[in-house]
Design a protein around this nucleic acid. Structure first.
Lengths: 206, 206
DNA sequence: TCTTAAAGTCAACGTTGCGTTGATTTTCCT
DNA sequence: AGGAAAATCAACGCAACGTTGACTTTAAGA
């Protein structure tokens, strides 16, 4: 029986001020180790001692190791979500530019949070909480871009085709290309160009 | 894997021994459980008892749980590899048809071995042996398709672009779309169409 | 200021599942 | 037959997860 209340994402409800500091330091240390050694090699013990407490104490703040990872992912999902919606408000006049700026935004996120995003992709299949966060974020992007495509009234070269499915596939492709580049440590700029080429060839704007 | 002896014609010298049968039954049971409960929930204990032996005995045949999974993946990689090379010999006259037949082949593999292929994708990041097999197979496909694109002298709509990177990205996209469809249990035929649309729009054959 | 409930901390425990070992039985070859 | 190689298993050790219950600190109200 859990002595404290947790929200649907596994975070403690209403963490007190001192606790919030601890919570943040746990997450910061966890992110460091995620970058340094990866999610597998990173153990609850190592996170706890790095944050200056014991395993048992860590379980006061997070229900499980996976919840720590999920909180890390959530940080980025929140940032991403905010960026998507503000970018959508300041809609550029040209749809091409809107698309390119979306790709740019994606590249920026991957360059600044590569390790966490890689972890999100890799853990999604086995950690439901993370899958939920990650899929939700992707869905937001998909919808934003579908709206863009509809608004721009993209001409379909070869008759009817399911534009929604195409956009979803392209979003998946984008994630994939950046993921690969991030893993390989190769240029995200090059990845960006590849992605842009494919988008514009598949969805030629008028 | 196990060092079998082969004669000068490449046939195996000895008829399937008791051990080989055991090995096969282990793999068969493992595949069943992979389909039924997934790689995580499937334990060495459960595989062993399902195959009618104890954990210790299983480790006589495979060095680790991951090696069992890897052997499962290898089965499919071998089939895939064979299919790719035979299809390449019987090259259709029209490059579009070659491409479509390649997509068809991929769909067929996903429909028959979805569970194992999903496992391969999901385990690649954390299991080096599997990553090696899977990446090798993908590389084979990439090269085969790059050759196709070069031979067909695809016209690039917008000046110079790194065709190799495009093909690699498209192969990744294909894997991704089929993976998603397989996870969602949705129509692989629909996935096939989406994939085909994207390929042909990105690489318009003359 | 004293009280006390909640917040915070930790050592020790229990569990699961992986991989190893050494001893034992079965099979196969000569 | 007899010995080498193949096959089998019970028991062990271990890492990492998550839990428990008891202890200390903090802060807020009488």
């Amino acid at each position: 029986m859990a002595p404290y209340a947790y929200d649907e994402n596994g975070r403690r409800v209403m963490a007190p001020s001192k606790g919030e500091l601890r919570e943040k330091s746990i997450l910061d240390e966890a992110e460091k180790q995620l970058i340094a050694v990866g999610a597998d090699a990173m153990t609850v013990e190592s996170i706890a001692t790095a944050a200056g407490l014991t395993r048992g104490a860590l379980y006061f703040y997070f229900r499980s190791k996976n919840d720590v990872l999920a909180a890390l992912v959530q940080r980025i999902v929140i940032e991403l979500s905010g960026a998507v919606s503000t970018r959508q408000k300041a809609l550029p006049n040209l749809p091409q530019d809107a698309l390119l700026s979306a790709i740019d935004l994606t590249r920026d996120l991957w360059s600044r949070h590569g390790a966490v995003m890689r972890a999100a992709v890799e853990l999604s299949p086995s950690v439901p909480v993370i899958a939920q966060l990650w899929n939700g974020a992707r869905e937001e992007i998909v919808e934003s871009l579908q709206a863009l495509v509809v608004a721009a009234a993209v001409e379909t070269p070869d008759g009817s085709s399911d534009e929604d499915a195409l956009v979803r596939a392209l979003v998946g492709m984008t994630e994939r290309v950046f993921y690969d580049a991030s893993v390989a440590g190769s240029s995200l700029r090059t990845a960006s160009e590849t992605v842009a080429t494919i988008w514009t060839r598949v969805l030629p704007f008028p």
